[in-house]
Write a protein that binds this DNA or RNA. Structure first.
Lengths: 328, 328
DNA sequence: TTGTAAGCGTTATCAC
DNA sequence: GTGATAACGCTTACAA
């Protein structure tokens, strides 16, 4: 592999000049610049990233820590992150933490070892609680989940409002006996629940039941199954992510109930399947691509300017009303 | 940050000894080993990856190049890849190539710049044609797609057989006017088509029509729409991935046709939604996790032993018969 | 079994 | 404007 020395020799300049040209630094004569560029071209020179990172202590890699890439929300976010990062010359390290604080800590250390420029991170509630801006030696931007610390850049849905709106929609359509299925371990499920309860309270209602479970299909299935087979079954099920909704839908099918006549179903996140099932699923759609995009842009800006003031970007979800919650 | 020198000083040995201990190399006394380990522990020393990579010319990172992580097949594979890689101490770089050979080439170069230990790669047909084992300076393992070159490690589904089996299933159930929707740009769609045609030919039939399209929802939608509105509509639609199936299903809904009475639908890949739609979708399920796992294990073995003979691992898919292709 | 020391390919500080 | 040159933190001959 050609090194910067080869380029310097070819261009008839020193390695310092080559480095300056490539870094776009000032104080290089037009002539030298042209010679260097020609040499780079001729030798097809590409700088060695490890050497750059070692010397400069910063890399062009950003970490992406999500609980599970198979959750369609994170899949969509990660695509946006990768697009924007790559556009800016960064690569991404992908990690799955499985909502496990120990795994999170482990990965974060590995990120530090690799001198990542920054990390986009979706922490468990537990990890989120103690987060501080300079804890890791690199900047972080939170996505999907919040932290009590307002000094940390964060991109979030307005979860409380979204939960409230989705619940109001059910109430408006005549549902009164609503069961809530919430993902545990994250602030997100909690906030959506808060909106859920707020809407119910405003009509002096309480949920017919609530379940907190791992935010995966099996969790949604079990929770909904229990709810539907209880003495006092719900007329609507409110879920806080697409996996829980899938599980709940499966439970409804298993119980041979009709949607929405026997029980309505609503959830979060627009997925491939939400308009493929019949009736179609009413959801709060999140602007997933924008979320990933915004988070990455924020991270890149902070990498450039570490003293930039922190900000929380709150995006609003869109209620997509469909057949699964039709008026009774 | 502590460096290896600090550890050496603390342990009262040289940096060479520290390095030997940490690399698990022989010829270190038990005493020295213990001292080093104690020092590492005390100082919470973690080796700098950039320095290791620069010096040794190999990193603990592997690249994962897929066309689009949002394709559930690749999502599932990537999860397995990350699991196995991490277990072995490797991190993964994720890249989306969008079936674009130029993007593929670009990313592959970036991988080289970063000294990746190897790459798991799902090439377009075009890129696959000229692949050679040492083209990039690091080993590659192909997933999902084949190359004419038998010297390249590959993990694949037995696509021809799978396509054939899925088609036979339709034929057995009385469907005769079958339309094929194939993903273009990859060998996979091609091979599945080969099986499809082979099954039809064995009964002296031809497809009622064929469409080659970008393997995404919109492609499936348009292709199926055209087929269904043609003068000579099919009684079954055969698709080669889950996105195409989703598009086709959408088209069938749009045309207000009933499945399977008006038209049957079959596809590839088990997804969250294949058992959520009604009737449920008949598919060839691929062992996606195993595919990712196997590919990663193969790559790690080749990294260890570059002269290991190349192998193609062909896994078989499982036909899951469901309502969308019930006997007529 | 251990230590010395020479790089790996950059960047950045000097001095010119 | 430019060029020597000293790091960055590690691995690995080679010598002892």
């Amino acid at each position: 592999m050609e090194s910067i020395k080869d380029v310097a020799r070819e261009a008839g300049v020193s390695t310092a000049t080559v480095s300056r040209v490539l870094a776009g630094k000032p104080y290089v004569s037009e002539k030298a610049r042209a010679q260097v560029l020609a040499a780079v071209d001729k030798l097809k020179y590409r700088p060695n990233r490890a050497a750059q990172t070692l010397r400069s202590q910063r890399s062009t890699t950003i970490g992406l820590l999500v609980s599970d890439i198979r959750n369609p929300y994170f899949t969509a976010v990660s695509r946006a992150v990768e697009d924007v990062a790559h556009e800016a010359g960064y690569s991404i390290f992908l990690c799955n933490t499985d909502e496990n604080p120990e795994k999170e800590a482990l990965y974060l250390k590995e990120m530090a070892d690799k001198n990542v420029a920054g990390v986009i991170y979706s922490p468990t509630k537990q990890s989120a609680e103690t987060l501080t801006p300079n804890q890791f030696g690199f900047p972080i931007v939170l996505v999907d989940r919040n932290t009590p610390n307002s000094d940390i850049d964060t991109v979030l849905l307005d979860n409380v409002t979204a939960g409230e709106r989705l619940t109001f929609h059910l109430l408006e359509n005549g549902y009164r006996r609503i069961f809530g299925v919430f993902g545990e371990a994250s602030t997100t499920g909690e906030q959506r629940r808060e909106g859920f309860l707020r809407a119910l309270r405003s009509m002096e209602l309480s949920p017919v039941g609530e379940s907190f479970t791992t935010p995966r299909i099996q969790g949604g299935l079990t929770a909904a199954m229990n709810a539907l087979q209880a003495a006092n079954p719900p007329d609507a099920i409110f879920t806080t992510n697409s996996l829980l909704a899938a599980g709940a839908l499966s439970a409804i099918h298993k119980c041979q109930l009709r949607i929405p006549d026997d029980v309505a179903l609503v959830g979060f996140d627009e997925t491939t399947w939400s308009t493929l099932v019949q009736p179609q699923l009413t959801v709060i759609a999140q602007p997933t691509y924008e979320i990933g995009q915004t988070a990455t842009e924020m991270l890149l800006k902070r990498i450039e300017d570490p003293k930039r003031s922190a900000r929380k970007v709150i995006l609003s979800g869109e209620l997509l009303v469909r057949g699964s919650s039709a008026a009774r």
